[in-house]
Design a protein around this nucleic acid. Structure first.
Lengths: 270, 270
DNA sequence: AAAATAGTGTCTTTCAGACAGTATTAA
DNA sequence: TTAATACTGTCTGAAAGACACTATTTT
C-alpha cells in the first residue's frame, strides 16, 4: 500500500510530539451587567507564572485521551474554575461564541501556548466560587481594570492581568459593543423576562453612553422579532418613581433590521 | 526558591509533550475576483489523508524551534504552497485577518489537530504554482464547489474539499459578504487604482446580486474616506460602450459610515 | 443608428434623533 | 407636591431606493 507508506512518512515527519510542541488553551471572557456596569469574570492565579495576578478563566484543552471540542472546553473551564455550572440552569441561558485565537510566541513564558478565546454573555449570576487552579474567582467591574484603547492597562491599575489577557478582554468588549448594534444579544444579559428600560440599561452599560429613553423604546418595538410582549407588567418601577414598565421576552430575530447604531463614533471611522 | 519549584511542578504536570498532544495548523481562505466571479485559492493534496482532494493552503505552525506568530505562518504557507510571494509585491497589497479556529476532535483522522483559519482578500493575481506538499495550486471559482448554506458541498460536486474545509470556506465567504457592508475592504480586491464600476463588480460578485449602478455610484462617493479621486480617467470603457469612468484610490476610512447594506436579506434575519 | 454605460437629478419612503406631552409612581 | 419615569406623538433632516435623463462610447 503506497498510500499507507505515504501516510506513515507524513506522520513521522510532522508528528508534533517529536517536532514542534505547541500547547492549546481555552480562555473565556464572560461578561455580565451588575449595578449598571459591565463586569468580567476573573480568577486569581494560584500557580506560576503570574501567580497572584488576575486572569481570564481557562486552561488546557483535553486533547487525545478524552477528546473534547473547543466550546465544551470553554464551558468546562468556566464551570471548574468558578463553580458556576453546579446549578445547571446558570450557564444554560448563556450566549457563547468564539472570539479569536492568540498565538504570539512570547505570550506565555513557559512554552509555546496558543489560546482560543471565547466570549460569553450572561445574565446576572450568583457570586462565583474558586475551584481548579484558581485561588479566587470574582466578577470584577471593567472600570477597575483600566483598559486602554490599545488593549493594555493604564499604569497604576492595581488589578493587573496575566499573560495577554488585557488584550483579549479588550477585544471581547469591543466585540460585544459591535454585536449589540446588529444582533439581539443584549437580551442575553437579561433574565428570561425583562423590561425595555432594563434592556436600555444593558446598552448604556456596554456602550458607556446614555441613550434617549423615548426613542430607544420606540426603536426596540419597531424592530421585528427583537422582543415579544408578555402582556404582564413588572412589579417594580424605576428607582425614583414612574409607572410600572411592561415585561417582554427575547424574540426570534437573529439579526436586528434595521440595526441599532451607536451614536457618535467619529473616532472609530478613520 | 519556592516559586521556581512551583513552576517546575507546573511544567511537569502540564507539558503537552507528555500529556495531551495537540497539533496546530494554519489554513488560509484566499479570495479574489476573476471574470466577475469569486475565486478561492486551493491546492490539490499530494499526501494522505485526503490525497488528491482539494484543500485550503495551510500547514503546521512552527512551534518552539523557530517560533513564528500565527499571521506569519499564514503568509508563509500561502507563499510556500502557491509560489505567490516570489514577486514581493503580490502579497503585500493583500488584506489578511483571522477568521476562526476549528477544533472538532474528528476533523483530522490522524490526530487531534486544531486549525486557525485566516481570511485573505487579494486583487487579481497571476496563476499560482504548486509547491510544498501541494501537487497543484489553482484559483477555483466558488460556484464550482457547490457550497450549501449549511457549510458542506452539494452531492455530485466533482471538486471535493478535504477535512472540514468546506465549512471553513463557507464561513470565510460569509465573513467577506458581511465585511463589505461596513468596511472599505472591497477595495482590497481591486488594483491600486480602480473605477467605481469595478468596485461595484466586486460587490456584485461577492453578494451575488446586481446593484443599481447609479445609486451605487452616488453612495460610494457620499461615504467619507471610502475612495479618493485621482483626477485621471480610465483608458478602458464598459464591455459594450459608454464613457470612460474616472479612476479612484482607496481612501483612509476604516469603517463605512453610513454602511452599504445588502438589499433583501429577509432570510438571514430570523 | 442602436445599444450599452457613466454619471447626475429628483422624488418618495423610511428612519434616526430632537422635543414635547401625558400618565403613573416614589419620595 | 415634586421629581422621576414609562411611554406616545410630532417634526426635521439624513439617507436609501426607484426612476428618469444626459453624455459618451462601442458595435
Amino acid at each position: 500500500m503506497a498510500e499507507r507508506d505515504d501516510e506513515r512518512e507524513f506522520l513521522a515527519s510532522y508528528d508534533p510530539r517529536d517536532y514542534d510542541p505547541v500547547a492549546v488553551t481555552v480562555d473565556v471572557v464572560a461578561l455580565t451587567i451588575r449595578d449598571g456596569a459591565v463586569h468580567v469574570l476573573l480568577v486569581r492565579r494560584g500557580v506560576a507564572p503570574y501567580q497572584g495576578l488576575w486572569a481570564l478563566p481557562g486552561g488546557f484543552v483535553r486533547g487525545v485521551h478524552e477528546a473534547e471540542d473547543l466550546p465544551s472546553a470553554a464551558v468546562r473551564e468556566l464551570a471548574e474554575e468558578t463553580g458556576l455550572s453546579a446549578k445547571a440552569g446558570a450557564l444554560s441561558r448563556m450566549h457563547l461564541e468564539q472570539l479569536g485565537t492568540y498565538g504570539d510566541p512570547a505570550r506565555d513564558p513557559r512554552m509555546r501556548v496558543i489560546s482560543v478565546a471565547y466570549l460569553a454573555f450572561a445574565p446576572e449570576l450568583p457570586d462565583a466560587a474558586a475551584g481548579g487552579d484558581a485561588a479566587e474567582a470574582d466578577w470584577v467591574p471593567l472600570a477597575a481594570l483600566g483598559l486602554t484603547e490599545a488593549g493594555d492597562q493604564r499604569p497604576g491599575t492595581t488589578r493587573r492581568l496575566a499573560f495577554d489577557h488585557a488584550r483579549i478582554l479588550s477585544d471581547g468588549v469591543e466585540r460585544a459593543r459591535a454585536k449589540l448594534e446588529y444582533t439581539p444579544l443584549a437580551t442575553a444579559f437579561c433574565p428570561a423576562e425583562f423590561t425595555i428600560p432594563e434592556l436600555r440599561a444593558v446598552y448604556e452599560a456596554v456602550w458607556g453612553e446614555e441613550l434617549h429613553a423615548g426613542n430607544f423604546h420606540r426603536k426596540v418595538l419597531s424592530v421585528p422579532g427583537f422582543v415579544d410582549g408578555t402582556g404582564a407588567t413588572s412589579d417594580k418601577t424605576g428607582r425614583r418613581g414612574g409607572p410600572r414598565p411592561r415585561l417582554y421576552r427575547a424574540g426570534d430575530a437573529r439579526l436586528l433590521h434595521p440595526a441599532l447604531l451607536r451614536p457618535s463614533r467619529e473616532d472609530d471611522i478613520r
